[in-house]
């Protein structure tokens, strides 16, 4: 690094983990505001963008905590699908009250997360392998059970009004109830990370797991709890989609595995763990959704959205590394002896 002029106000802003996410969200928004025109900026365009961001965020926010602690969760898609299946089977096929189905769906999320966590911590295998295995097993189990019980891959359900009118409907014809849930989940995740000692533990585990253990942090329990959190997030999305479409979305899910990771990384979370912020992840979800939805309003083929996302992801990873260097280069004379 060259000699740095002390431009501290700018630098402290640059050092925030969500800065990159803010820039990319702003960039894509302005881009599609220009090329997508008035319709993209109208209630239809904005709501569809926010709906997608909210659904993605339900999974991406708890996944961000998992990733800040240094793990990956590739099972979110299957968990979401399996919890939707369980909900539809319980409340639809077997006619139990909606609350039972919702409880069953959440239980699926908790169990899948617990399995991910306990296997990862007990075997010391990389979490991406463990969660990938759990992902396939969960899918297989869910498909197997639904086919066994209904003979098809179709399970319908009519949610009771308390659920249908909150999470299963469009407010003012545009806005999904998931947006409210997204706000609540954002608040909870932010609270945990910024305001509780558990947040400190999550950063410490992602930063250096051996040292974290030495200070007495119950590392295994925290990691298991975080996997259970991402399980619950996946189950919430399963519940929302089942409530929206009155049936378990068996095909849905797999796209959320990578989309959640993309949103988290665009949101400024380091792939190596130890750094990141919920605000950034919210912006990451919005960026992702803006690209996906904005492309429709430009009149271009939607294929181009993939190119866009791929480029953004690469730019995000590169800039995350740069921002991390900036964050670490806070001292004036430090760079001279960075030799370790």
């Amino acid at each position: 690094m060259a000699a740095q002029k002390p431009v501290f106000d700018v630098r402290s802003l640059l050092r925030r983990p969500e800065f990159g996410a803010f820039v990319s969200a702003l960039f894509v928004f302005i881009f599609f505001a220009i090329f997508g025109g008035a319709e993209f900026l109208g209630p239809g365009g904005l709501s569809s963008t926010l709906n997608i961001a909210a659904e993605l965020g339900l999974i991406a926010l708890p996944v961000a905590l998992v990733m800040i602690a240094g793990d990956l969760d590739l099972s979110v898609g299957s968990t979401m699908m399996a919890s939707a299946v369980v909900m539809a089977l319980l409340s639809g096929t077997y006619g139990l009250p909606t609350i039972v189905g919702v409880g069953g769906a959440l239980a699926v999320g908790l169990i899948a997360g617990f399995l991910n966590g306990i296997i990862t911590t007990k075997t010391n295998l990389p979490s991406f392998v463990v969660t990938l295995a759990v992902s396939f097993a969960t899918s297989g189990l869910a498909f197997g059970i639904i086919r066994l019980l209904t003979g098809t891959l179709q399970a319908d359900v009519t949610p009771e009004p308390w659920l249908k009118d909150t999470l299963g409907t469009l407010f003012f014809n545009n806005w999904e109830g998931a947006i409210g849930l997204f706000i609540i989940v954002s608040a909870i995740v932010s609270w945990i990370l910024y305001k509780t000692k558990y947040g400190n533990w999550i950063y410490a585990i992602g930063g250096d797991v051996v040292s974290a253990k030495a200070t007495g942090i119950p590392v295994d329990k925290v990691r298991i709890a975080l996997f259970m959190g991402s399980g619950v997030g996946s189950a919430l999305l399963g519940i929302v989609q089942t409530a929206m479409y009155n049936s378990a979305q068996v095909g849905a899910g797999s796209s959320f595995v990578f989309n959640s990771i993309i949103a988290v990384v665009i949101g400024g979370v380091l792939l190596t763990g130890g750094y990141g912020s919920p605000v950034g992840v919210v912006l990451g979800c919005i960026t992702f959704a803006t690209v996906g939805q904005g492309i429709y309003y430009t009149g271009w083929e939607s294929d181009w959205a993939l190119l866009f996302i791929g480029t953004l992801l690469l730019a995000a990873v590169l800039s995350n590394n740069t921002f991390r260097r900036l964050a670490l280069g806070g001292g004036k004379k430090k760079s001279a002896k960075e030799s370790k």
Partner: peptide
């Protein structure tokens, strides 16, 4: 990547 204050009190 933790702040001085946070890392001082880890655990």
């Amino acid at each position: 990547l933790m702040s001085v204050g946070r890392s001082f009190f880890v655990g």
